[in-house]
Nucleic acid binder design. Structure first.
Lengths: 348, 348
DNA sequence: AATTAGCACTCTCTAGTACCGAGCGCTAAT
DNA sequence: ATTAGCGCTCGGTACTAGAGAGTGCTAATT
C-alpha cells in the first residue's frame, strides 16, 4: 500500500476528527471551511471532493448512501490511529483524578480491580474492563500449612511481591502436627522462588527423580499442591459502565444494542477478544472488524497489559463504538495500566 | 378498600394475564371471548365494558389513551399477586435444571453466587441478582493466627458452618512465636461461639472489666481483631442478564432504558431497594412505584432472603418490567433462595 | 335491575405524497 | 491542477387520508 499524499492525510484526519465529534457524515463543504481554519490554505469544496473520491477508492472512507457525506472505514480509523493521531498525552486533571482513586489504602484486591474498571469507564465515558490479575507468573516466597479443625487444611502461599492466595482443602487422613511442620519446611525449601505456574511440574519432576527415602514426602507435597492450586484458575472480569456504550447514538438501534449486550455479558467471549492481544508495552487498538467478531463489528477495543515487577499479570481496557476519541482513550488506558501495576506493587 | 366482586376478580385476572402475555392493552371483546373459554359463561363485550369501568374507577386498571384497551395499574398487579395468582409451583424441569447447577462441587464462594445469579437470570428471562452473603450473623468456631514472613500476620477465622474469612495484617512489632500461640489460644477461648458481628464489642467489654494481669493480652487481641475485621464489610452484588430487561418491548424507548441502566449500574441504589425488604420467609414482590424509586418506576422486583442455619445471610432476586409473569417468577425466586441456602450449608 | 345491541366518537397507526436541502459527480472553463 | 456550475440522488419532515380498534352512551330486552 503506497502511502497517502500530505493533503490526503490532512483531509482524512479532518474527516475522522469531525465525524467523531459530530456523528454526521462529513461533507466537502465542511472540510473546505475547516481546512481554511486549520492550514490557512484555500481549497474549494470541489477539490476536496476529488480527494475524497481518491480516499474512497482506496477504502479509507465510505458513503452511507449517495448524497451523504463521508464516514471513515476501519482502514481509515486504523490509518488515523497509526499515523495521524496526535501524540497521546494525559491531561493533568485526569492524572490527578486517577492518582486520587489509588491514594487511600485498599484492602481487597477485588476493590482495587473494580475501582480501576470504574475509573476507566468514567474517564473514557465508555465501558471499562479489567481482567483480574493472575499471579501465575510470580515467584513463590513462602507457603504455610495451617490445620483448621481436624478435617481441613488451609494452604496459604505468598508471592515475592506479597500477594496471598489461600485455599482450603479436605484431608483424607489426619496428619500429626509434627509431620505437618516437617512437610511445611520441606515445601518451602523445595518451592521458594518457583513460579506459581510451574509448581505442579516442578514437583512432579522431582518426585520422579527422588530417592525412596524422600518419595513419601514428595508425594504428600504433590497431593497438597495439586488440590490447592486449581489447574486453570478461571479468571474474572470487572466490567463497568456498559450503559455509556448504550447511550451512543449508533446503538439506539435495537438490534445493535442487543448484539452488543450479548457479547458484553459473556465473559468468555470478552476474554478471548482482549486477552490474546500483543505483549508490547503501551495500549493496543482493535478497530471494528479487526477482531473478527461479527457481533462486535461496531465496536473498538483499546487495551493494555498491566505488570507487576515487569511481569504481565493482566489486561485492562475500554470498549466503545468505533467512532471514539482514540487519542484520548489510548493515553488514558496506557496511563491507567501503569498506575494499576504500581498500585499492585505497593499493595502490601 | 372493600373487596372485589367475584366477576370483577375474574375480569381483572384475565386482563393481567393476557396483558402480560401480549403487551397489548386488553379490550372488552378479547375478554368476552376469553371468558367464554375459561368459565363457560356468556358475557357480551358491553357487560365487560361496564365491569372495566368499575375497575378503572377504583384504580385497578387504566387506559393508555381513549380508544385503547385496558392495562393493569400497580394496584391491579398488587391485587393479582396477593389474591388472584395461582399457588406458586416450580415445574419439575426447572427444579431439575437448578439442582444440576448446584450438583458439582464449587470451590469459590464467588462462583457459587455468580452461578446463582445466572440461574435466576436464565430461568426468569429477566435480570438476576444476588447480594453476597454476609457471615456477620454466624458464630465463630475458631480463629487461627499464622505469621507470614516477619512483617505480616495472617488471621483466619472459621464459622460454625465452616466458612472461612481470612485477612492479612501488618504488625508494628515482631511478636515472638510463644507469645503468638498464647494469644491464639486466648482468642479461641474468648471468642468461640460469639457472632462475627459482636466480636468487636465483646472484646471491648471484656477489656474494660479485665484485671491488670490480663489487660495486655486483651489489648493485643483487640488490636488484631480490629484490624482484621473491617467494620462495615462492603457487600458485593452479582448481577447477570440485564440484557433481558433491555430486550423487553417496553424498554425500547431510549430514555427508559437509559434510566434503567443508570440504576442497575449503581450497586448502592440496588442494595437500598432490595436489602431492606421484610424478613418473612418466601418471596416478596415490589411492583412499579411501590419501591418509591422514580428511576425504576417501570420495573418490579421479586426478592427473597436466603439463610444458613436459619440465619439470614443475604438477599437474591429478579428485576424485570412491571409486566412480568409474577407467578412463575415468585416460585422461581423462592425455590432458588432455598437451594442456595442449602448449597451454602453443605459447602464445606 | 342487569344485560345487551347498536351507533357515534375518539384516537392511534400506517401509507402515501410532496417538498426541502445536503451533498455528490461530472463537465467545461480557468 | 483547480474550480464554478449544474443536474441528480436520496434521506428527512410535514401533511393528509383512511383503516381499525375500542370506548361510552342510549335505548331496548330479559
Amino acid at each position: 500500500m503506497q502511502d497517502l499524499k500530505e493533503r490526503q492525510k490532512q483531509v482524512l484526519q479532518m474527516i475522522v476528527t469531525t465525524y467523531v465529534d459530530t456523528i454526521n457524515p462529513v461533507g466537502s463543504r465542511t472540510i473546505s471551511k475547516f481546512y481554511q481554519k486549520c492550514y490557512q490554505g484555500e481549497l474549494s469544496p470541489a477539490t476536496i471532493r476529488n480527494e475524497m473520491h481518491n480516499l474512497e477508492e482506496r477504502d479509507y472512507i465510505e458513503q452511507p448512501h449517495t448524497s451523504a457525506g463521508r464516514v471513515p472505514t476501519d482502514k481509515g480509523y486504523r490509518y488515523y490511529v497509526d499515523c495521524l493521531m496526535p501524540e497521546p498525552k494525559v491531561p493533568p486533571h485526569v492524572a490527578a483524578l486517577v492518582a486520587r482513586e489509588y491514594r487511600d489504602k485498599i484492602h481487597h484486591i477485588e476493590t482495587l480491580v473494580e475501582r480501576t474498571s470504574k475509573i476507566l469507564s468514567t474517564l473514557s465515558e465508555q465501558a471499562g474492563l479489567v481482567i483480574f490479575p493472575s499471579f501465575e507468573q510470580l515467584a513463590l516466597k513462602r507457603i504455610e500449612l495451617t490445620p483448621i479443625g481436624r478435617q481441613h487444611l488451609l494452604v496459604v502461599c505468598v508471592t515475592n511481591s506479597g500477594f496471598i492466595q489461600s485455599s482450603m482443602i479436605d484431608m483424607k487422613e489426619v496428619i500429626p502436627e509434627s509431620e505437618l511442620s516437617r512437610l511445611n519446611r520441606f515445601l518451602n525449601q523445595e518451592l521458594e522462588g518457583v513460579l506459581l505456574a510451574d509448581i505442579h511440574t516442578h514437583l512432579a519432576d522431582r518426585l520422579e527423580q527422588a530417592q525412596d527415602s524422600l518419595r513419601a514426602l514428595y508425594k504428600a507435597a504433590h497431593a497438597i499442591v495439586l488440590e490447592s492450586f486449581p489447574k486453570a484458575a478461571e479468571r474474572r472480569i470487572a466490567l463497568e459502565g456498559s450503559r455509556h456504550v448504550l447511550e451512543q447514538p449508533e446503538f439506539q438501534n435495537f438490534e445493535k444494542s442487543r448484539r452488543l449486550f450479548k457479547m458484553l455479558e459473556s465473559k468468555e467471549s470478552l476474554m478471548n477478544l482482549i486477552h490474546g492481544t500483543s505483549e508490547h508495552p503501551g495500549a493496543q487498538v482493535q478497530i471494528g472488524l479487526e477482531h473478527q467478531c461479527q457481533d462486535m463489528r461496531d465496536c473498538s477495543f483499546v487495551t493494555a497489559q498491566y505488570r507487576v515487577n515487569e511481569r504481565i499479570v493482566g489486561t485492562l481496557g475500554v470498549v466503545g463504538p468505533r467512532r471514539m476519541h482514540y487519542d484520548r482513550i489510548v493515553s488514558l488506558v496506557d496511563f491507567v495500566s501503569r498506575r494499576l501495576g504500581e498500585a499492585l506493587e505497593k499493595w502490601l
